[in-house]
Design a protein around this nucleic acid. Sequence first.
DNA 1: TGTACATCAGTGAACGCGCGTTCACTGATGTAC
DNA 2: TGTACATCAGTGAACGCGCGTTCACTGATGTAC
Lengths: 239, 239
Amino acid sequence: MSAHARRRSEGSGDPGRRPGDPGRAGRRTQGERRRATRQALIEAALLRMEAGESFDSISLRSLTRDAGIVPTAFYRHFANMDELGLALVDESFRTLRTMLRRARAEEAGYEQVISASVRPLHRYVLDHREHFAFLVRVRSTGNPLLRHALRIEIRVLTSELATDLTRFPHLCDWSSADLMMIADLLVNAMISTVEAILDAPAEDAEAQEEIATVAEKQLRLIVLGVPNYRSGSSRPPRA
Amino acid sequence: MSAHARRRSEGSGDPGRRPGDPGRAGRRTQGERRRATRQALIEAALLRMEAGESFDSISLRSLTRDAGIVPTAFYRHFANMDELGLALVDESFRTLRTMLRRARAEEAGYEQVISASVRPLHRYVLDHREHFAFLVRVRSTGNPLLRHALRIEIRVLTSELATDLTRFPHLCDWSSADLMMIADLLVNAMISTVEAILDAPAEDAEAQEEIATVAEKQLRLIVLGVPNYRSGSSRPPRA
DNA sequence: TGTACATCAGTGAACGCGCGTTCACTGATGTAC
DNA sequence: TGTACATCAGTGAACGCGCGTTCACTGATGTAC
């Protein structure tokens, strides 16, 4: 489908229409169309990664084909594939942060946090499959720029979690090194869980239920060790 | 360097000579050369992945270039890149299993196992960088065949670990589902540790030391929870 | 030990293909008067 | 409101390149006698 054909069919029930599309106006401003095309490129990339392709093996031409534009038009939106990749990191992390903000809003003890978090998070991952699939897949991409951007973002999340953990009994006395240690453990356990969620068929309710149950148990097991753990120092290392 | 030049330089201190190469014989049997070429292809692939390339983006031609043969000679050894990928999984898992066999040989309680295992394993990962780099990188490859082969192997390792864990106090009474739960947690923690080891510069002793210390603490924290954990059932689920 | 033939790892030319990127362009949208 | 011009998303031809794979081949190694 050419961009011309695409434009002609707008507002007439085109199933590919995006949510924010006014549609019935029949005509959109240049800025609106520009944003829509850019988003079409981003979504084409997410879709391909969700389907199993690695970022490195996605070609610029395949994305423009999916988005219904000519290859050269790609450059109206991104200087190269790296830049598009960073946009994907941005968009996917925005989704992830929204999820974490909600989880953080809960005020509760260990047990309540775990049981109140895991199920909603599980649901959220399935509802935003494409973003989470991108995040776990791109961790091992061959692209150094993307890999680095992702590592940085994950380290920031881990630090934020470490800070959050000081709200809890026992943990409030831990050294910051040990808080990072446990935050890292929790983050990695959750990443593995996300991988499992995406790996199992979304419609296999039993398998999905099992994954959520195991994730809960794993988190519970980790926090059970907390009261018995003797943190290396109760003050920040260099204070 | 062409295969001809390569062959001519053999036995004369060629730095690329493989360990098992008789060398001074000056001539090798057809079978020996065949095996050497095959290995050269495998090592070229491992080297490229260690350097950061993803499996999907490695071309057949680049490997034959590295191995010093003509592209078409590739087919004397592998039907396609998939088959070479499976050979890499094989070889890398052989290395991993050797490591695990050694670790298992230790007889001890929780604490002793942890401190006696983490450092040697850390050393071992650095000594077999290329195999471990392949294993962690290929987890997210776009190649479904490879990804599946790897998942299977990891699941087997997790099961074996679950069985091993019954040697320990408390754990011997756990249900098999809960044993898999903790084995999975331990395996994922170790995979994350391996990623960290490979991610930090090997010559940065301080960073490497820090990674080993954190890994020890994480394992210790997990096992500290064990005595307090009430396993769902003390018998296999369906018995 | 010597000869004749089979095997087979590696060769090299050739192919068609999809790729990223260049360039000059078109024509609809936006803006200044 | 109408006109003249500027902007700019998208076009389409063209390029050189590395890719996987085919094919008939070469010449050293291996084997049967």
